[in-house]
Structure formats: structure tokens, C-alpha cells
Write a protein that binds this DNA or RNA. Structure first.
Length: 1105
RNA sequence: GGGCUUGUAGCUCAGGUGGUUAGAGCGCUACACUGAUAAUGUAGAGGUCCGUGGUUCGAGUCCACGCAGGCCCA
């Protein structure tokens, strides 16, 4: 055990971190923090796997700090916290990166490069920056198991996924269906939203837009008007949608192309877009064919809800439809921003269209393909099918035609062709070019279609109720993400589209016969092996499954099974959504259920997870969905959804803009503790953080600097006195008021910090620790008690001071260990290395402190608060009167409102007198007759009783004279005669303070007022001189390079009488303060140093003895 | 376009349940202190509490509608 507390000259926080890191590694502290808790209750944390195909950023430091804090905290509370690291390895970003590096596109896969080779490249790329990630993890002090991480591409991981998929399959939750997706007919493939968001995909184009007239059934000439920018979808119209709260009007007018009188229905707000205000004046009868201004007249007004259910005639009956098609539905997406406020729906060609149609049980326009399966009226090349009469074979978009066809003089696009047809049939009201933004395929450069594509789905909607119900049991930080963002997402749940048409990912383990009548879902590699053996036996030639089988493509595609009826089965080509990979990590990370049954039992669900708020619909959802559907349980009980890390101006960080912060540089320059502390203390994790390096500097100076100074102060004197905390603890009642106060504050702090951590409020914890350290401990306790440490013998009082300060520092180390793991470790080990008070050699193996309620004395805290206010007021008065603190003063006056206040202040009198260098406090009360009182109405109280009469009451109270206040105080009640009737005012209804003493210089704050006696007697003046001398002598000592404990002898040249008297009268004081063994006078001292004091000069000589 | 979120001093942030004069730290200015000294203390300047309307005796706080930034989704 060390004899001395290490003392520091300068400190480099990054070096400290390196040392601590080495210590952790040597002593395997992280491993032990888990293994030493074997058998203890578990606290389960799930690590959301990052993808190592990119470099880590500063925001990862933020996210991981949040995770780390609570894992360390719970460990210190005695829980066993296993944290398995993980890597997310599949998915489109990996594929795109590889394609970019190889200079290929998706088309080249299978041609220029084999799927096997391509996937091998992906596998390499995905771990490209693993070393950087591991380095960051270590350097920032994030404790997570990097030795045995789960990796989503490993066969065991995939096997677990297959098991879960099969469970879903067996529950009937996996089905193949349609979804409307962006589709490129030229490329023959669906596009992901990611692909659509590539720059240049959305372009402004001019399309033909048509406002079509849908005739209401059973009327002579009533039409519903609907507008579309894709007239080619009109033959597939199956419904119209209106907004239920939108107001619609029926307007009598004429068809501008056929000139026939008609009544049209549209949203009232859209009238100006279709009708000329000038034409409103014209009588309907005056209209003649071809007139430019077409008269119109509003006949009727009705709500959207009244329109719902209205039947209309099919606009273009190529494929006849029957009810419930061709009726008006309600659509939540309908607006009056553009169009008519009535939206045309074609089930096959729009996501909203599909959703609303299916929800209302409305059939769409479909034909049968060769296999008898339904298909839309447009084929996958983008052409109308043969059933579409004169439209058959036409491409729906003119861009799909070859250029020579398109440029022919008589070429008409399909949209134009249809528009003309509608005009001729009296079914069009307006046809015009319309410019809008429309997505294009990044490969073919041609517009995409929204088109129904086959996909595998998980029927999450079947579990909507459970998902919502169980979500309510999750503690979300912030709450709004849980009930708002996530809750709304669950309320509007759609089935989970699992399919991805890609190469690098988890293959869907479903095999089908060619006629799609038979299907098998495989739930394990063993099962696959057995099924393959069966297939081989049935004569399907292929390799048997070996132990080292890689379940990725292309190998899994070369596996064929045999159906129960003896037919060959091939795998569905889809891969699954990578979110399934990560959502299944609670089970797959342990290769459950093939291994680790017990581990899962102990470690599910998670007590805590944390990830960016952008994961709400990603990881948070898939974790939740799988846990609810498979286990009827939540996957996590507490979750922090942290915000973004922006640059200091609030802009998103990006490498392109050059405002990204390099995490490695930051950690190297400022060290991990200040970086972590700044990120946590500056803003709540769920708010966006405006990351400013200046902020780290501030944290370093203010919190770590102060803490370190305080420790250094302690170490300096504790080493001199040989304090090693070997003596028994000084009983609380034998300690000073300020000792008991800081101990009380310390225990309050422990309770506050524990509560904050328990509530997943790390910001509150950090701020509380910092405020205590800076304000209470350093700026008040140490300041007040400095002399106890460096003066006098090693008495019990001195021991009490050391013990108190030691305890504070040691508790701060443990409280802040989760946030600042390195510095806390250093502090803890520096202290404990000498005292040996704790058994654990690391703060992270130690237990979190417990607040001792018995040591919390709120009365004492209030008293000390008063002392602080009074001291501050006296300083303020001295400053105003230009009397420096070194000049002692005789007394301060404090008006006392009641006995309690007097007792409170008396108890801390010595502290105040010491701090402000004043000899005594005089309390003055009513009896003195000099107080001037002030009265204020107690608004919250009066407001509750009198409400609207407040104005007259406050007015009356404002007019109170001293006599009125005295009468109220004397009688306890005062009747106000007011215009609105008399009111009995009691003492509780008002706040009386004393804020003035006539003839004195006073200052006041809260309910305390202080007056200062500025008379300086000769005696006080002498003492002031003595203090000045001490101060100058101390400076001399320092200049001479003397150590604190070195002794001196002082020789002073006689001077003014007052000065001589001052030195004689305060000889002992001067000697004690300056560690002088003797103080002697002489007449001449030419070699002595001339000391300049305010209005005195003195020659002295100081020698070390 | 929808959902969620943020807006308070030059900067970063506090401001239960509505209550008279809106706070802290940093920065700035001035002064003081000097055995914690690359510290510390005191004072000062600095505010349309994003805007508009409403509820109320009283709104930074509650309600409505906007504006601006952010995230997610369409």
C-alpha cells in the first residue's frame, strides 16, 4: 500500500486514460466486473449492432457513452451485466459499397462477377473498419465484449433466424402477397427507397394531367371530378376518395369540350382552380357553345362524409367492375392542395390506392395471366395487356417507346390518347400539361411506375393490439418517442415487407414447387440436411449438406428439396430485410435455441437498450415486433432514443461538408472523460447535441479542473500530516458545522444521483455531481476550511477535516465512475491506494454509494444557505464601500423576523464572521424600533380564494403603511374595506420582510437583509495592518521558494507608531500564520525588503531557520 | 403532405402544479483576493422568453393558429 497520495503538477487527461486503460487490461477489470457478479441478479443490455463497413464518428461516442453509463452503474449496484458486442453485416449499403469499389452494377452480378465472388467481396468489405471500431471502443472506455461478438453473417446466427422465421411460418404469419412498389419496367426490377433517394432520381417533368368526370349513378348529369397526373391509370380506376371533413360543392356549368350542361362536384377550396370568378355573374342560360367564359353557379354544399358511399359509372369500362367498386370512399390522404379534392384510385398503381381499396374490400382492375393468376392491366414491360381493346400493347409512358417511334410526327402518347378519348366522350373537364417532381430509375433514366410486386410479408397487423398494449409497458426516454412517434407508427401498422431482391443477406428459407402448390419452411441446418438427403434419395441430384455449409447465396440456391408429393422444390429467391437480422439479436446472438437456453432465460427481455431516435421504426420496432409475436413479451423495458450530434452551428455533420468531428482526434486531445462528460452534461441525450469542442474545454476546466485541484489540495496536506485514514472515524457530532453540512450535502447528492441514474436521466446526474463539486465542495467547504488543513497540530479536528474531504472525493469518484470512468478510476485508486478503505482495487468493481438519510440535515443545509447569502451580501457591501476583506470590521446587523431565523443564523455565526472578517453579528428585532418593513401579497394563496378580486387587493396592500403592517402583525388579521366588499387579511395571506435600516448601508437577498458597521477603530486598523503584513510575508516566503512546512525568522525595521503597535499587538498571530519562530524589531534594516502596503511601508528581512 | 421534436441573455442550458423584479455556467467589462494560484471572489452590462390570437385577476408556463430548425415517414 502506498504511503503517499500522488500529487500532480500538470495533468494530461489523455495520458491518464492510457494509464487507466493499461491497468484495466492488466487486471482484466472488465472481465472481472462481469465474472465477479456471477450468481447476482442480471441486468440485461442489448447492443444494437453497428456496421463496420464505415468509419465510426463522434456520434457513436455519444451513443455508446449512454449505453456504457447504465451498464457500469448497474454493475456498481451489484448486478451482473453481460454485454455482448455485435456486428451488423448484411444489407444494401454493403452491396453498394462493393459495387462502387468494383465499378460494377447489379446487372453485372452473375455475369461479370459470380454471386459467390460478389458475396465474398461483401463479406470482406463489411469488416473493413473493424479495427478502427475496436480502437474507438477501447479508447472511449466503452465496455462491451469484443472477443465473442455476434456477427449476423455467421451460419449459426442465420440458423437462429431461420428458426424464428419458421416459428412465424408455423403460426401462419408468413405469407406471400402484393405490395405497390417503385418499379422500373426497363430494368425489370423493384427499387428501394434508398435507390430512389439517390441524387437526380427525382426530376421535374411535364406530364399530361387530366380532370376526369365520373358520372354519379342514377342522376341525369351529376359528375364527380377527379384529377390525375397519370391518365393511363384511369382505365384501372376502381374507386374515388374524399376527405370526410372537406367541404364539397355541386356546381352547375357546361362541359368545355362538348358544351353540354352538367353539374360537377369538387372541393369548395378548389373552385378558383377550375372556375373563372368573372364567369360567375353570367346567367347559365346565356351560355353559347364555344364561349370563352363558361358560366357557373354553386347549387349545393356538402361534407365529404355525405359523399362517401355514392356510386358512379365506370369511366372506361374495358374490364367491367361491380360494387363495392365504383363508389366513393374516405381517404385520410386527401387534401385540397391541388386537384379537385376528390382522388382517383387505381388499386394496382398506388400505395394509398391499394391500402384504401383493400381496407374497404374493393376489387381493383385485374386480368388473369397465363397461369390464371391476377395481374394488373399493365404488364411488367409497362404495356397495356391484350384485354384492353384499343389500348392493348401501348406503353403507358412515352419514354418507354423507342426514340424513332416517339419522334414520329403523328405520335401520340398514351396519356394524350386517353385524354382525347375522354374529351370526345364528354368525360373530361380539363386537360393540361402539369409540371411536377417524379422519380426516375437511376439505371434506365426512365420514369418508374408504382406497380404491384410479389413479396413475402410478416403479418404484424395480426398482433397490432398486443404490440400497442405491450408498448405501453415500456419506459421510453423521452416519453414522446414511445407514445408519439413509436405509438403512432404502431397504430398505423402495415404488414412487414420482408423480401429483398438482393444477393448479400439472410436467405428466406422457404422452398416451393413449380406450381406453387406445395411449400416448405426450413428451421435449422439439421432440418435442411435431412430434407436434402430425402431429396437425393428421391432422385434429385445435388451435393449433400456438409457441416461447413454456408447458408448464403449462391449455395443455398443450389439446394433443392422434394415435396411430400414427390415434386422438386426450389428456394424462393428473396433475401430477408436486414432489420430482421438485428431485431432477432436477443435470440440469435446466443445461437438460441440450438445453444444457451439458460442464458436467454436470464437475459431476456433487456432491461435497457439505447440507440439513435432514427431507429424507432428500425431496430426498436423489429425488436418489439419479434418479441411480441414470438414470445408475447416486450424485448426491452427501458429505452433511450438519443438524438443527433450536430456541429456547433446546428448543422448535420458530414464528411463532404468537412464539419465532421474526428472522434480519435477529440479523444486524443481532450481525453475520453471530458468528452463523455460534456456530451452527457450539456444536453439530455434525446435532444440534439450541438457539438462544440469549446464545450469540452469548459467541462475540463470547470469540473475536472476543480475536482483535480481539490484532490491536489487534499493530497498536499494529507501527505504532510501523514493522514492515511487509519484513525477511527471522528463521530459526526464531534465534527464542525461545515463538516456536517458538506456530509449532509454529499448524502443528498448521492440520493439525487441515484434517482437520476435510476430514471435514466444521466444529464441530471452529471449536473448534480458537477454542481456539488464546484459550488459546495470547492468553492465553499474548502474555501472555508483551508486553514484547518495547513495550520496546527494533527488534532482530531484536523483529522475530521481530512476524513470529511476524503469521503467527499471518494464518493464523487464512485458517483461519476459511470460517466467519467477513467478519471474516477484514477481518483479512487489514488485515495484508496493509501487508505485501503475499499476492498475492490477498481472503482468499477466497487459498489455504488448509498445515501445515509441519517446524515442529511435539511435544517443545516438551510442554515448554511443563509450563511452563504449573508457572506455574499457582506462582500457586496464591502465592495460598495471599498473596504477590503483583509480589513477587519466590528459588526454586522441582521434584522430578524422571528426566533427561528435567529437560531438558524446564530448556528452558523462563526462561519460567517470568519469568512467576511467581521467581529460580531447583532440581531435586531421589532423591539429595536428601527426596522422598516415591507409587505407583499402572497399571490398564489390569495388567488385561490379571491380570484378576480386580486387587482383591488394587491392595490390595497401596496398602500400599507408601517402602522398597517404593525396592526396586522399584532392582531393577526386586518380587514380591508374594498368596493367589492370587506376582506379579512391574515398573516398567511402576505409576506412581510424587513429590507431597510434607516441610516445604514444595507443589502438584501431572499428574506435576509444585512447592514454593515463601517467604523474602523485603531485596534481594527492595527489588525488590518497585521493581516496585510502576513499577506506580504506569505508572498515573500513563496518568492524564496520555501515549502509550506519550512520555518522562518522575521526581522522588522521600526516605523510608524501605529504600525509598531499593530505588530506588537498581533505578534502571535503573525508568527502562527507565517510559520515564524521569532519576530524581532530593529531600528535599521537597510538590506531588508521594502514591503508596500496600502498606506504603510515597512522593511523586513526573512530568513529560513 | 403527415407524425414527433426544438425555439428563454452573444453561446450552452435550468425554469413542479400559472403568481409581482425570468435564472445558472461560459464569454465580455470593472474591481478585489493571493499558501488551492494555469485557481478564486464580487459587481456590471446583456432578454420582444420565436410570432399572433385566446383562456385567466394574472401566461415563459395552459389552448389554438402560424414561423423557423431538426428527425422519421409518405
Amino acid at each position: 500500500m502506498a504511503q503517499k497520495y500522488p500529487e500532480y503538477k500538470g495533468i494530461n487527461y489523455a495520458d491518464i486514460a492510457e494509464q487507466v486503460l493499461t491497468f484495466w487490461k492488466e487486471k482484466e477489470v472488465f472481465e472481472r466486473s462481469v465474472s465477479e457478479r456471477e450468481g447476482a441478479p442480471t441486468f440485461t443490455f442489448f447492443e444494437g449492432p453497428p456496421s463496420a463497413n464505415g468509419t465510426p464518428g463522434i456520434h457513436h461516442v455519444m451513443a455508446r457513452t449512454v449505453k456504457d453509463i447504465f451498464c457500469r452503474y448497474k454493475t456498481m449496484q451489484g448486478f451482473q451485466v453481460k454485454r455482448k458486442g455485435g456486428w451488423d453485416t448484411h444489407g444494401l449499403p454493403v452491396e453498394l459499397q462493393v459495387e462502387k469499389e468494383l465499378g460494377i452494377t447489379k446487372e453485372d452480378i452473375g455475369k461479370k462477377i459470380s454471386v459467390e465472388e460478389y458475396n465474398r467481396k461483401c463479406r470482406e468489405a463489411v469488416m473493413k473498419f473493424k479495427d478502427q471500431w475496436d480502437e474507438l471502443t477501447q479508447k472511449m472506455g466503452y465496455w462491451v465484449d469484443l472477443d465473442k461478438p455476434y456477427i449476423t453473417f455467421e451460419p449459426q446466427y442465420i440458423e437462429s433466424l431461420w428458426h424464428l422465421l419458421k416459428k412465424l411460418y408455423d403460426k401462419g404469419l408468413l405469407y406471400k402477397g402484393y405490395t405497390i412498389q417503385p418499379y422500373s419496367p426497363g430494368a425489370g426490377t423493384g427499387l428501394s427507397s434508398h435507390e430512389l433517394n439517390q441524387p437526380g432520381c427525382y426530376r421535374n417533368v411535364k406530364d399530361v394531367s387530366a380532370t376526369a368526370l365520373f358520372k354519379v349513378k342514377g342522376t341525369e348529369r351529376d359528375y364527380l371530378m377527379a384529377w390525375t397526373t397519370t391518365p393511363w391509370t384511369l382505365p384501372s380506376n376502381n374507386s374515388l376518395a374524399v376527405g370526410k371533413n372537406i367541404t364539397y360543392v355541386k356546381v352547375a356549368t357546361y362541359n368545355p369540350y362538348t358544351y353540354q350542361p352538367i353539374n360537377v362536384i369538387l372541393a369548395k377550396d378548389r373552385l378558383p382552380a377550375y372556375f373563372n370568378e368573372k364567369a360567375k355573374e353570367i346567367a347559365l342560360e346565356e351560355y353559347k357553345e364555344g364561349d370563352k367564359l363558361i358560366p357557373w353557379q354553386v347549387l349545393d354544399e356538402l361534407k365529404g362524409s355525405q359523399l362517401v358511399g355514392t356510386s358512379y359509372e365506370q369511366l372506361m369500362p374495358y374490364i367491367p367492375l361491380a360494387a363495392p367498386a365504383l363508389t366513393v370512399l374516405e381517404g385520410d390522404f386527401v387534401t385540397t392542395e391541388d386537384g379537385t379534392g376528390i382522388v382517383h384510385l387505381a388499386q394496382a398503381f398506388g400505395a394509398d390506392d391499394y391500402r384504401v381499396s383493400v381496407a374497404n374490400g374493393v376489387p381493383g382492375v385485374f386480368v388473369k395471366d397465363e397461369d390464371g393468376n391476377p395481374m394488373p392491366a399493365v404488364d411488367k414491360q409497362g404495356r397495356f395487356v391484350k384485354e384492353m381493346g384499343d389500348l392493348a400493347g401501348r406503353y403507358v409512358k412515352e419514354e418507354f417507346y423507342a426514340d424513332e417511334v416517339r419522334n414520329a410526327p403523328d405520335f401520340k402518347s398514351t396519356d394524350v390518347y386517353i385524354s382525347i378519348k375522354l374529351k370526345e366522350e364528354g368525360k373530361a373537364f380539363k386537360v393540361e400539361k402539369y409540371e411536377h417532381s417524379y422519380p426516375h430509375c437511376w439505371r434506365t433514366d426512365k420514369p418508374i411506375l408504382y406497380y404491384p410486386l410479389e413479396s413475402w410479408f410478416i403479418k404484424t397487423t395480426a398482433y397490432k393490439e398486443q404490440l400497442v398494449r405491450l408498448n405501453r409497458t415500456i419506459n421510453w426516454k423521452p416519453e414522446s418517442t414511445g407514445i408519439g412517434r413509436f405509438g403512432n407508427w404502431l397504430e398505423n401498422l402495415v404488414d412487414w415487407n420482408l423480401s429483398r431482391s438482393r444477393y448479400w443477406g439472410t436467405p428466406l428459407p422457404i422452398w416451393r414447387t413449380e406450381d406453387k402448390k406445395e411449400e416448405k419452411c426450413i428451421g435449422s441446418l439439421a432440418e435442411l440436411k435431412a430434407e436434402v438427403a430425402k431429396a437425393i434419395a428421391a432422385g434429385i441430384d445435388q451435393k449433400p449438406i456438409e457441416g461447413d455449409f454456408d447458408p448464403h447465396r449462391p449455395f443455398v440456391d443450389e439446394v433443392y428439396l422434394v415435396s411430400d408429393s414427390g415434386k422438386k422444390m426450389t428456394r424462393e429467391a428473396d433475401l430477408i430485410d436486414v432489420w430482421f437480422d438485428s431485431g432477432a439479436m436477443p435470440y440469435a446472438q446466443w445461437h438460441w435455441p440450438f445453444e444457451a437456453q439458460d442464458v436467454l432465460k436470464e437475459n431476456f427481455p433487456a432491461d435497457f437498450i439505447a440507440e439513435g431516435v432514427d431507429q424507432t421504426r428500425g431496430w426498436f420496432f423489429t425488436l418489439h415486433a419479434l418479441a411480441v409475436m414470438l414470445f408475447d413479451d416486450v424485448a426491452f423495458k427501458n429505452v433511450i432514443a438519443n438524438g443527433l450530434v450536430l456541429d456547433k452551428n446546428g448543422n448535420k455533420m458530414s464528411k463532404r461538408l468537412g464539419n465532421a468531428i474526428d472522434p480519435f482526434k477529440t479523444l486524443a486531445q481532450y481525453g475520453p472523460d471530458a468528452t463523455r462528460w460534456y456530451m452527457i452534461a450539456n444536453a439530455n441525450p434525446w435532444d440534439n447535441l450541438k457539438f462544440d469542442l469549446e464545450g469540452i474545454v469548459e467541462v475540463q476546466r470547470r469540473f475536472f479542473g476543480t475536482l483535480h485541484n481539490t484532490y491536489n489540495f487534499f493530497a498536499l496536506y494529507a501527505n504532510l500530516d501523514g493522514f492515511r485514514y487509519q484513525e477511527g472515524e471522528v463521530p459526526l457530532e464531534q465534527r464542525t458545522e461545515s463538516d456536517r453540512w458538506i456530509i449532509s450535502r454529499l448524502n443528498s447528492l448521492i440520493a439525487d444521483v441515484e434517482r437520476a441514474y435510476n430514471d435514466y436521466e444521466p444529464t441530471k446526474a452529471a449536473r448534480a455531481i458537477s454542481d456539488f463539486t464546484v459550488d459546495d465542495l470547492s468553492n465553499w467547504y474548502v474555501r472555508l476550511n483551508r486553514k484547518r488543513f495547513w495550520r496546527g497540530d494533527y488534532t482530531q479536528d484536523k483529522q475530521a477535516a481530512y476524513q470529511t474531504l476524503y469521503d467527499c472525493l471518494e464518493v464523487i469518484a464512485r458517483l461519476s465512475a459511470p460517466i467519467a470512468p477513467f478519471y474516477a478510476e484514477l481518483l479512487y485508486r489514488n485515495l484508496n491506494g493509501v487508505s485501503g478503505r475499499q476492498q475492490q482495487e477498481s472503482v468499477h468493481l466497487a459498489l455504488f454509494p448509498k445515501a445515509d438519510q441519517g446524515r442529511i440535515d435539511l435544517d443545516l443545509e438551510e442554515r448554511m444557505h443563509d450563511a452563504q447569502i449573508i457572506s455574499s451580501l457582506v462582500h457586496s457591501l464591502r465592495k460598495k464601500e471599498k473596504i477590503k476583506v483583509r480589513q477587519p470590521l466590528s459588526r454586522i446587523l441582521i434584522p430578524i423576523l422571528n426566533q427561528h431565523q435567529r437560531e438558524m443564523i446564530s448556528a452558523v455565526e462563526d462561519l460567517i464572521l470568519n469568512e467576511v472578517n467581521v467581529k460580531s453579528i447583532e440581531y435586531i428585532d421589532d423591539a429595536s424600533g428601527v426596522l422598516v418593513k415591507q409587505i407583499k401579497p402572497n399571490l398564489p394563496r390569495l388567488g385561490k380564494t379571491y380570484g378576480p378580486r386580486m387587482k383591488e387587493i394587491t392595490g390595497a396592500v401596496a398602500k400599507f403603511e408601517q402602522a398597517d403592517i404593525a396592526r396586522l402583525e399584532r392582531e393577526g388579521v386586518y380587514t380591508l374595506e374594498l368596493p367589492g366588499g370587506p376582506i379579512n387579511l391574515t398573516l398567511e395571506d402576505v409576506l412581510i420582510t424587513s429590507q431597510d435600516i434607516p441610516g445604514w448601508s444595507v443589502a438584501s437577498e431572499e428574506d435576509i437583509t444585512v447592514a454593515l458597521d463601517m467604523q474602523i477603530s485603531d485596534e481594527l486598523r492595527q489588525e488590518g495592518i497585521a493581516r496585510d503584513l502576513v499577506n506580504r510575508l506569505q508572498n515573500l516566503r513563496k518568492d524564496m521558494g520555501l515549502d509550506v512546512q519550512d520555518k522562518i525568522s522575521i526581522t522588522v525595521a521600526r516605523g510608524e507608531t501605529l504600525v509598531n503597535a499593530a505588530l506588537e499587538a498581533n505578534r502571535e498571530y503573525i508568527c502562527t500564520e507565517t510559520q515564524a519562530l521569532q519576530l524581532q524589531f530593529t531600528d535599521q534594516l537597510p538590506e531588508g525588503t521594502l514591503l508596500e502596503m496600502d498606506d504603510v511601508q515597512l522593511r523586513v528581512q526573512v530568513e529560513q531557520v
